[in-house]
Structures are given as structure tokens and as C-alpha cells.
Design a protein around this nucleic acid. Structure first.
Length: 940
RNA sequence: GCCGAAGUGGCGGAAUUGGUAGACGCGCUGGACUCAAAAUCCAGUGAACCUAAAAUUCGUGAGGGUUCGAGUCCCUCCUUCGGCACCA
């Protein structure tokens, strides 16, 4: 018997396509179920075996839901705008549109090989004008709305203008970045430019100065991951923070709702915690410290107003607007030096230097609001301009970083909490009684906080304030390959284009190098920039998360040219029931999508408040990274020397560097250790492109093996350990590949890929086939009814698999199938009624082979439209129980008895068992614990 | 530094409310088939002790605790992985 998997797979694919098996019926009266995968960025390297893990899981769920009579939406598309395509274009001149569509074609081919049940008629592509028209449209809505805290929703900007006309900006509860007050008359007297500038501080999409990573040498703005150790990854050029006028989205307006609504989501607690931390709500006080000898005050934010009598210095961020004002003549050169140093530091660098805080004294002092004492004002980069007010009161007695700083610069450290009752408390723990704090003495911390805030309010120098660490999202990129903004400018103003002018098509260009001053390559296309008379187009483009923040809505109605999706479609599909994707998007993508979705909900454009009801993060599939020891030039001279890992000791280790060896040529010994044989050494030389005449020496042990160092890590082109699913599918079949990926372990967990292990699943599928076929591939099934034993085997599998589907525990389902097939083979079951049910049960996991048998058994239609098996408890009942019997908690024997025995009967009979006498041996039985149906424990 | 997750055989992992630890699979060992190999099938496979069997003891990162009973609950510690925006 030799099943031709490739043949079957092709036949099935043709059959499914011809009969539109996976086409979604938009007019169904069945309940809906929406299963979504995080859509991929179509990168040039194609899919590796790690990518489809989540897709297989969601595919199984989609198929099983369909068989359970749901109308299933299970689409796929591409997040097609992005930096890699642009960088590739810069290097090769290939237009991103071209490379992207090429990559998409490759991805679709790879996905098709694995047998996913996507309805491809619903495919979306974020770089397609018919799609990004609506990304631009949503941006316009954000631009035309502001956030009203009194009704807690987004409102049209027109309503805000009406309010200004009546009341100015008083009695206004709106999210804004405006400072100062104006009344109705002042508003009316503003010129159009001033009005526009004022409104900009309220719009949900607005322009402001924000910082970018600027690399002078490359003449471009860099993303965080293009920077390593403060210098550009390409070329190692210095990078500094540069301020540019850019678009932002006022996501902070939604902070409270984004935080509260997490409660009702079926997401993992870990993921919710990550989002909570990102939003970072804190309740504290905002207060002003008067500056000595000046007529101004320094505004600070603190979550610990109770520690106000412990303040011994102030710290402001190097970017703080007061820096110049506060710096005294004598400190000027020191401060300038420090500012320069701080601007060159990357955030990663700042992080690394927690223990080594640095700073400089301004020469100025602040006045303590209660004691009137002078407090020195310092500058340090451990205070961030983006958080709070960019200035803090330092309490070195109760804050670790403040303490580190005080110790370094010899500043006083004052304890204002008696923590003697809490021996294990650290200095930052919020326990203890206030001491040395005037009117706060003897209070506990929360009373002290309330009291201080009351006093601050009485003196009108402070108030309670809720702060979020979440910052508004930068929405501009100085790049080509993204959505153009529907925005134009004249000398004074910024204008939103009309809806009818959408989409603003991204023009074709041929030079992908950044233009002057780091602007996007688009700014070089003057014809496009000046297309609208007397106006210039915005030349920045939108970031990657623009298109991905709403794509799940487009799948509901992908071809609609009048709206982003029809209200009927939105009403029917509501939101995503199950979303599967990687942890790398745990914060960014999910937070932005929730924000956009809530905004659209406020505008009554979507019927749901949250986009993703249930969310699961799949783990990574890791690869094995193998390296060989190569002696460095310094020790080897001109000869290239590779050494066996067994010869490396702690003494000579520094003479070698490990270099990567491709996984494909690595051999394994009996213990699973990696080595190169003499043959594979030759292949390795070829891989390293060593010419014949080069002098290469091997340092070997006694045998013919060169041992390697091996570790588990990322699967990546860079480590030469990528396994392509196409190859696995070609060798073992798609069903086997799917089941093996699931069999590897729990979906959420990361686990290493090991192609060798696949033979177990491959054997299983062969055994499964042999239940129905003889060696000539002929059906050998009989029409008898299943007997009690067969039905018990089948139904325990049905029960287990259904339970596992509910818990997304696919690895144990695959085990259950193996056990079932092993058991059926052992009793030589050849009954059609049993096999047919098993096929249906396995169809979501192995869609090809089960379809093949379905057809071969003469069933109608597709197995994927059959009804999913449900177990019947009556087949599982057994009339005896196998009790484990323990003495003092230690299991000593098993005891098979009738299930009908009562607890009392068990108790009297068990002590008479012969096997137990050597343990009991006449000793008194103190206690007997009997859990009927489960276990017996005798305590002596 | 902070936050999150996880440590179970040689390996991936199972044990759904505290109740027979190691299901299922890989690998390995032995056997059958074969001239031989591959493939396939059968058996064994946590460790120690023992010629073997049986028995016994140990055993879920380490150490304590709760319990008749702990991989599972509590405390302390160690290690690994993932995330991060030094968040006042």
C-alpha cells in the first residue's frame, strides 16, 4: 500500500475549488463564527515552518465550527506596506509594488500547499488603493473629530467650534494638548490660522513637533530596530534625536476605556497585564515648586505626594523647556556638554545604565512649598520629557533611582517613613508611618497622600491628577512605501481633502533614496506634490499599523466601494470570535486596533466596542543553531583552522570564534549531539566558499567526527536553519505536516522544530489508512454495526477531541487519534460505521486524507460539510473500577472491583486483601480515605 | 532594573477540580523479515540496587511548609525564555 499524497492533495484542492467548499455565504441564517489569523507581512524569504503554526490551529477551529453548523468567516490577506520592501528597493531598484506582489504570490502558493480553508475571494491587501482608500477615509474621520470626556466619546470638530463660539474653552471636557484660556470673544477675533492652530490641539489626528531618530550620514530617519548601540545598523553612523513636524493620533484620549474594557475580553491574563502596563495609569499629584529668584514655577508630577518632606533635590529632563532659563552662567558649559551627550543616547542605552545615573547641576534652586527651604535643581536623563511633566521631586530616601543619583552626587538622603515594623520592606514599599514630616507625622501613607493634596489645593499650588504613561502615537513616516495622507497645505494652513478625492494614490517613483532633509522620496515627485493648484501635498506616509488597525473589518465586505464595509455585513459578523497570532503584536497592533475600533464605535460605524473577543498567542517554533569553532586570525596566522568542540577548554576557548553551520549538513550521534562527518566537512567548505588551494586545517579528536556547539534559538535565514514547509509537505504530505505541527506541544508554548520526529505522525497516518485499505489500496470495510468495545474506543476519542477543541489543546487531540487507531488495529476493527465517524472527527486536522476516504466510501458532497461527531456517554460507561490502593499515601497495589460497591463495602473488603497484609501486618488503621471511583488510601 | 511566562526521562511533551507521574510520539536496545541494508512488524526503555525475576528505595529546578495524599496549593531561592517606553 502506497498512498500518493500529492495526487490526493491535488484532487482535493480541485474538488474544493470547483465546488466552492469554503466560500462564505453572506445570507446565511446560521449563527456566525469569525476566526482570524494575524495577516502576514509578505517578506522576501517566504514562510518557514514556524509561520503556519497559528494558521493550522485556526484552520482546525474554522473547519470544526463549520461542521458544527456555524457560518464561518475565515479569511486571509496581506499587510503589504512596510520597510523591508522599501529597503530592498533602495538596494536593487525593484519597485516595492513589484517585489510585494511577487512575495504575495509565493506566500499564497505556500499556504495553498498546507490546505487552509480560506475564502480567498475575501483577500485584502493593505497596499491596494481600493483598500487604503478606506484607511485614508478613517484618518479623515479622526482628523474631523475630537474626544469629549463628558459623554466619553468622539464628537465632530464642528461641535467643538460651536462650543468655542459660545464659551471659549471654558467648561470644556475635551482631550487636548492646548495650554491657556480663551473666551468666546477671543475665539471670534482669532484669524483663520490661529483658529486652525488651536483646533489642531483637539483633533484626534493632529500635527505636532515630535522626535525622530535622525542619522545625518545616511540622510534619513531610522526606525528603532535600524539602530544598534546608538549607531545605525547599516554603516554604524551616529544617530541623534531630531524634532520634526509630524502627525500623531490622540490615543491617550481613549486610555481609560482601553484599560477598563480589557476586563471583559477573553485574553490571557499575561497579555492583559502587558496592555495594562503599557497604558500605565497612575493616580498622583501635580504641583508647582516656585523657583528662587525667578517669577516662575516648576510643574512636577508625583505618585508619592506623601513623601514631600523627603525632597532633597529636583530633577528635570535634558529636553525640558526650562533648561536654559535655569542654567546659571557658571554651569553653562557643563550643561551643554551633558545635553549633547543625552541627545546621542538611544533609549536602549539609557536602559542599560540604571545603576550608573548621570546628571548635572543647573545652579538654580526651587522653594519647598511647605518648609520654604531651597532645593537644588539638577538635570538628568533618567527623567523623561515624554512622561508626566518632564520634571520630578527627588526623594532619595524612598526611591531607588533618586537614591542612586543622590549617592553619586553627594546629595542629602532623608527618611520620612518609619518602616521598622516591616522588616522585609524595601525603601520603595508603600508601608510605614510618616515621620519628620510636620503636619503628616504619625499618618499612614494613604491618609498622608490625601492630606498633602488637600493642603496643595488650599494653597492653590497643586491638585490630584491621574496620569497615563501611554503616549500619543506618532503617525508619520518619512518613507515611500505606505499610505499617502489625504492632506494638502498652503503657506499657512493644512487642509483635509474631501472624501470624493479619495483614494490619494501613491504615485510610482524610481528613486527610492530619501530626499533632502530626511523627507520621503515622494517629495522629489514635484508633479504629484503640486498636483492640486496652490497646494502642496503631505509627503510623509502612514506607518505600518495604519492598514492593520482595521483590516479585520474589511474581510466582512471586501469589495465594497461605497463604504469600508456595509452595515449589514458589520451587523452580521459583529467582531472577531477568535484571533490567533504572535506575542510580538501583544501591545502595538492590538492597542491601535482597539483604539480605531472604539473610535468607529463612537461614530456608530461598527456595532461592537471591542474588535477581538478571544485572543490566543501562539508560541514560536524555534530552530537549532549549530556552530563550529574557528580559530581567530590572531592565533592561526594565514591558515584557517576549524576545531572539534571536544578539544575546546576554558583555557583555549578565547582563541576561537563559533561560526554558523547550515542545519542541512549537520549529523547527530546516538546522544543527539551535533557533529560534521568528513563528508559533510567538504560540504561545509563549499558553503563557506573555500577554494581548493586554501590552507585549511582540522583539529580532530580520535574519531572522524568534528563536534559542534548546538543551541535552540530563532529560526532564521541568518542562522541557516530555516525549514521550508513546502519541503516537508512534499515529503510527508500536508496532513502529516499539519498534525505534526500540532503534535509538537501546546499552541501557546515555544518549542523547537525537529524534522526527525515527524516519522511518528507519518506512521500514524499510514496506520490510519490501513484500517480501511488493503495492500492493493482497496477498501476492505464491512457494513456490520460497531460492537461495545469498538464504540467505546471511538467515543472516548470523540469526547477527548471535542474537549480539546474547546481548549485549543491540539497536541493531545493528535495523541487521542493515535490511541484510537492503535486500539482499533489491535482488535482488528474493519467496520465502515466506525471508520466513517473517525474520518469526520479527524477532518479538521487532516482535511485531505479524510476527504479522500469520504469520496472513496461513496459519501455525498464534501466531508467538510458533514456533521461533526458528538460522543454518547452511554458507550463509555464501565461496570468495574480499577482502584489504586495506597498505604500512607504511597501506592502499593491496584484492585479491580465492581463499580456498584458502596463506600462501606469497599472499606470492609479492602483490608482483607492478601497483597496488603505485609504492609498492614496487624497494625492499627488510623484512617481510611475512600474517594469512590477514584482511589483508596489507608493510613496506619 | 521592571513586567510576564516556564522549569517533568536522552528529546518533544501528557497528567482538565490536590487522587495510579512519565499518556502519545521521537530516539535508543533486542528480536522477526532479509544474502545484506532500508522499510515494516513485535518486545523493552525514569534512576539506583540485583545474574535475572520479584521486591525495595529515590524521582516533576533547589529548599521548606500545608495535607491522609502535592508536578498541581503556600513561602524562600535558583535557572531559562519572552516583553519593555529608566514611567517618578
Amino acid at each position: 500500500m502506497a498512498i500518493q499524497f500529492n495526487l490526493i492533495e491535488q484532487e482535493c484542492k480541485d474538488f474544493w475549488q470547483k465546488n466552492e467548499i469554503y466560500k462564505v455565504d453572506p445570507n446565511s441564517d446560521k449563527p456566525k463564527y469569525y476566526v482570524l489569523d494575524m495577516f502576514p507581512y509578505p517578506s522576501g524569504s517566504g514562510l518557514h515552518v514556524g509561520h503556519p503554526l497559528g494558521y493550522i490551529a485556526s484552520d482546525i477551529i474554522a473547519r470544526s465550527k463549520r461542521m458544527k453548523a456555524y457560518n464561518v468567516l475565515h479569511p486571509m490577506g496581506f499587510d503589504a506596506f512596510g520597510l523591508p520592501a522599501e529597503q530592498y528597493a533602495i538596494q536593487t531598484g525593484v519597485h516595492p509594488a513589484h517585489s510585494t506582489s511577487h512575495n504575495i504570490a509565493r506566500y499564497k502558493e505556500q499556504l495553498a500547499n498546507i490546505g487552509f480553508n480560506y475564502d480567498w475571494t475575501r483577500e485584502v491587501n493593505t497596499s491596494d488603493p481600493s483598500y487604503y482608500k478606506w484607511t485614508q477615509w478613517i484618518f479623515l474621520q479622526l482628523y474631523q473629530h475630537y474626544y469629549d470626556f463628558s459623554t466619553n466619546q468622539a464628537r465632530p470638530i464642528q461641535e467643538l467650534i460651536q462650543h468655542f463660539e459660545k464659551f471659549g474653552n471654558s467648561n470644556l471636557y475635551a482631550a487636548n494638548s492646548f495650554e491657556g484660556r480663551f473666551d468666546a470673544e477671543q475665539w471670534k477675533s482669532m484669524n483663520i490660522q490661529e483658529k486652525d492652530k488651536t483646533l489642531m490641539n483637539f483633533r484626534l489626528a493632529y500635527r505636532k513637533e515630535s522626535f525622530v531618530n535622525w542619522c545625518e550620514a545616511l540622510g534619513t530617519v531610522l526606525a528603532n530596530d535600524e539602530i544598534t548601540n546608538g549607531v545605525s545598523e547599516r554603516g554604524g553612523h551616529p544617530v541623534v534625536k531630531k524634532s520634526m513636524m509630524q502627525w500623531s493620533l490622540r490615543i491617550s484620549a481613549y486610555a481609560e476605556r482601553l484599560l477598563n474594557d480589557l476586563q471583559n475580553l477573553d485574553w490571557s491574563p499575561a497579555l492583559k497585564t502587558m496592555q495594562q502596563n503599557w497604558i500605565g495609569k497612575s493616580v498622583g499629584a501635580q504641583l508647582f515648586f516656585k523657583i528662587a529668584d525667578q517669577d516662575s514655577s516648576l510643574e512636577i508630577y508625583t505618585t508619592r505626594p506623601d513623601t514631600i518632606f523627603g525632597v532633597s533635590f529636583m530633577v528635570i529632563a535634558p529636553e525640558h523647556p526650562f533648561v536654559d532659563k535655569l542654567t546659571k552662567e557658571s554651569q553653562l558649559s557643563e550643561v551643554e556638554k551633558f545635553k549633547l551627550k543625552a541627545s546621542q543616547k538611544s533609549e536602549i542605552e539609557r536602559q542599560a545604565e540604571i545603576k550608573n545615573v548621570d546628571g548635572v547641576f543647573t545652579g538654580s534652586y526651587a522653594i519647598h512649598p511647605f518648609t520654604g527651604k531651597e532645593i537644588p535643581i539638577w538635570i538628568s536623563d533618567y527623567v523623561l520629557i515624554e512622561y508626566g511633566t518632564g520634571a520630578i521631586m527627588a526623594v532619595p530616601g524612598h526611591d531607588q533611582r533618586d537614591k542612586n543619583f543622590a549617592e553619586k552626587f553627594n546629595l542629602p538622603i532623608k527618611k520620612i517613613l518609619d518602616q521598622s515594623e516591616f522588616a522585609s520592606a524595601g525603601i520603595e514599599d508603600r508601608v510605614g508611618t510618616l515621620i519628620d514630616s510636620e503636619f503628616l507625622n504619625g499618618m499612614d501613607i494613604s491618609t498622608a497622600i490625601q492630606t498633602v493634596i488637600k493642603q496643595l489645593e488650599l494653597k492653590s499650588i497643586g491638585t490630584e491628577r491621574i496620569n497615563y504613561k501611554m503616549r500619543d502615537a506618532n503617525f508619520s513616516r518619512q518613507r515611500y512605501w505606505g499610505e499617502p495622507f489625504p492632506i494638502v497645505y498652503d503657506q499657512q494652513l493644512c487642509y483635509a481633502l474631501d472624501e470624493k478625492q479619495l483614494p490619494v494614490i501613491l504615485p510610482k517613483i524610481s528613486n527610492f533614496q530619501p530626499a533632502s532633509d530626511g523627507t520621503s522620496p515622494l517629495s522629489r515627485n514635484e508633479q504629484w506634490v503640486n498636483e492640486i493648484p496652490n497646494r502642496k501635498r503631505e509627503t510623509d506616509t502612514m506607518p505600518g499599523y495604519a492598514g492593520s488597525s482595521w483590516y479585520f473589518l474589511r474581510y466582512m465586505d471586501p469589495a465594497n466601494s461605497d463604504r469600508f464595509a456595509s452595515s449589514q455585513a458589520l451587523q452580521y459578523w459583529q467582531n472577531v470570535d477568535l484571533y490567533i497570532g504572535g506575542t510580538e503584536h501583544a501591545v502595538g497592533h492590538l492597542m491601535y486596533s482597539r483604539f480605531w475600533h472604539k473610535f468607529l464605535f463612537d461614530l456608530k460605524l461598527v456595532p461592537t466596542n471591542e474588535p477581538f473577543k478571544k485572543l490566543v498567542n501562539q508560541g514560536m517554533i524555534q530552530g537549532e543553531i549549530n556552530r563550529i569553532y574557528m580559530m581567530t586570525k590572531e592565533f592561526s596566522g594565514e591558515i584557517l583552522i576549524y576545531a572539534d568542540a571536544r578539544l575546546i577548554t576554558s583555557e583555549n576557548k578565547h582563541q576561537y570564534i563559533p561560526v554558523e553551520v547550515p542545519l542541512s549538513i549537520v549529523k547527530k550521534d546516538a546522544e543527539g549531539k551535533s557533529y560534521l562527518s568528513l563528508d559533510s566537512i567538504t560540504e561545509f567548505y563549499r558553503f563557506r566558499s573555500h577554494a581548493e588551494h586554501e590552507k585549511i586545517k582540522l583539529q580532530q579528536s580520535s574519531d572522524d567526527r568534528i563536534y559542534l556547539i548546538s543551541e535552540i534559538g530563532k529560526m532564521s535565514k541568518r542562522y541557516h536553519n530555516v525549514v521550508n514547509p513546502d519541503d516537508v509537505v512534499a515529503e510527508y504530505g500536508a496532513d502529516c505536516f499539519r498534525m505534526y505541527e500540532m503534535f509538537l506541544g501546546p499552541l501557546e508554548q515555544s518549542k523547537p522544530w525537529d524534522t526527525k520526529g515527524i516519522s511518528g505522525v507519518s506512521n500514524f497516518i499510514r496506520k490510519f489508512c490501513s484500517l480501511a485499505l488493503n495492500e492493493h489500496d482497496e477498501l476492505i470495510l464491512t457494513n456490520e454495526d460497531g460492537n461495545k468495545e469498538e464504540l467505546k474506543i471511538l467515543h472516548s476519542c470523540i469526547k477527548k477531541v471535542n474537549q480539546d477543541l474547546d481548549h485549543l489543546s491540539f497536541n493531545t487531540s493528535v495523541s487521542a487519534f493515535m490511541i484510537c487507531v492503535n486500539d482499533l488495529r489491535r482488535i482488528d476493527c474493519k467496520k465502515k460505521s466506525i471508520f466513517l465517524e473517525l474520518c469526520k472527527l479527524m477532518a479538521p486536522f487532516a482535511p485531505f486524507i479524510t476527504e479522500f476516504f469520504w469520496q472513496k466510501m461513496g459519501q455525498k458532497g464534501s466531508i467538510h460539510h458533514a456533521i461533526y461527531p458528538q460522543h454518547s456517554e452511554s458507550f463509555l460507561e464501565s461496570d468495574s473500577v480499577n482502584y489504586p490502593i495506597s498505604i500512607n499515601g504511597k501506592k502499593r497495589m491496584e484492585w479491580q472491583v465492581s463499580k456498584s460497591l458502596t463506600k462501606e463495602e469497599l472499606e470492609t473488603q479492602v483490608v482483607l486483601l492478601d497483597e496488603l497484609q505485609k504492609y498492614i501486618g496487624g497494625q492499627t488503621i488510623h484512617r481510611m480515605i475512600i474517594v469512590p471511583g477514584r482511589m483508596i488510601n489507608i493510613v496506619i
